[in-house]
Design a protein around this nucleic acid. Sequence first.
DNA 1: ACCTGAACACCGTTCAAGT
DNA 2: ACCTGAACACCGTTCAAGT
Lengths: 219, 219
Amino acid sequence: MLVSSAMTARNAAQKKRGYHHGDLGRALVAAAVELIRDRGPEAFTLREVANAVGVTHGAAYRHFEDKTALLAAVAEDGFRALGAHVGRAVASDPRGPRERLRSIATAYVEFAMDRPAHYRVMSGPRLNEDGRFPSLEAAIDEAFAFVIEEIRRGQAEGVFRREPARDLALGVWVMAHGYVELVFRRRLKVKSPKVAVEYFEKLFTPYLDGLAPKPPRRA
Amino acid sequence: MLVSSAMTARNAAQKKRGYHHGDLGRALVAAAVELIRDRGPEAFTLREVANAVGVTHGAAYRHFEDKTALLAAVAEDGFRALGAHVGRAVASDPRGPRERLRSIATAYVEFAMDRPAHYRVMSGPRLNEDGRFPSLEAAIDEAFAFVIEEIRRGQAEGVFRREPARDLALGVWVMAHGYVELVFRRRLKVKSPKVAVEYFEKLFTPYLDGLAPKPPRRA
DNA sequence: ACCTGAACACCGTTCAAGT
DNA sequence: ACCTGAACACCGTTCAAGT
């Protein structure tokens, strides 16, 4: 569903050079994503990313306060794309809250498999430690709001149990995020991104069933 | 339940100096845990850890092949302690599989809250990339075996649904790990480790309910 | 056998200087 | 306004030399 489009970073940078590089800020972000995709966020180097777009490493400081700020820009792009992807999933699924909730969780995992570099920056390093980048928090909340809303709808229709919607929604987030983490850390081996998404739907089913009202007492 | 005991690292190193430091290897591991607890695994520095035990940074290479090997030693200690903690939880809980499974998952979260430095190293950096540290993998599998075993027991007693035990067990791991990750990254704010554990039990309940046989069809 | 001290190649950050 | 190039303080790793 999602289409990766960072391969053209270097070309774009060379083409539309305004002063020296057109929009160096965006070129740096794109190059960073490419590097992180190939070698992980911990191997990511400011000097290397500057080198990739053909600029001295000092030049990056004209566009980002420090290395963390560049990573935060990657993360924010990611959260916005995640919100959009989840939003599309919920909008295009006319079935009831139960299936829409499944779609939302699946879309989350799908996004992670499709944009692993973004996801790892989003979930990895402790950016925003002392409240820098408040827009980052906003983007997270926006994506999470879809889950809460869908839980509420299901409760109103009587198909989900009546507990604080936030608690139930957090369970969904916990499952989707925990699953992706296990896959990325290779604790859980999967043959392909497609298989990873399918297997998540299976693992997620008990939780979905457990959301039903009047939980069954044990036999 | 668990008692942290790394504060005495420097003292112990000074007391029982055999050649220069008694067991420098263990002293380095203990000092590393202390540093990571205070400032996170990404701020962790080999030079600083050597300095903390009163030794030149080059000396560490007599005991660990490189920085990753030292972190792997921390992680392995952690996995063994986790296995022991989970093992105690399941052994001391005579109630049925359902409550024992809850105890296992809770013990997992408890461990993470009690030994955050260990947990973050265990779950954080991609150690064991190319199959180094196979004993690390073994320790992980050992802890996970408790979950699978309990699922099987519940299936035999007819209180859990009959699906591959590994799938259902992975769901438990996903929830516990995903929850801890959200707490550590402060996406989920909790007042204390104790509250964190209690709140997990609440979030986990739908999954536990969903493990029951014959899932309820939606209304 | 174990540790020191100096060296090496690298890193993020800063800043005068160029255009 | 934007970038360069050199400098600074740091890092992991290596290795001859000391005990």
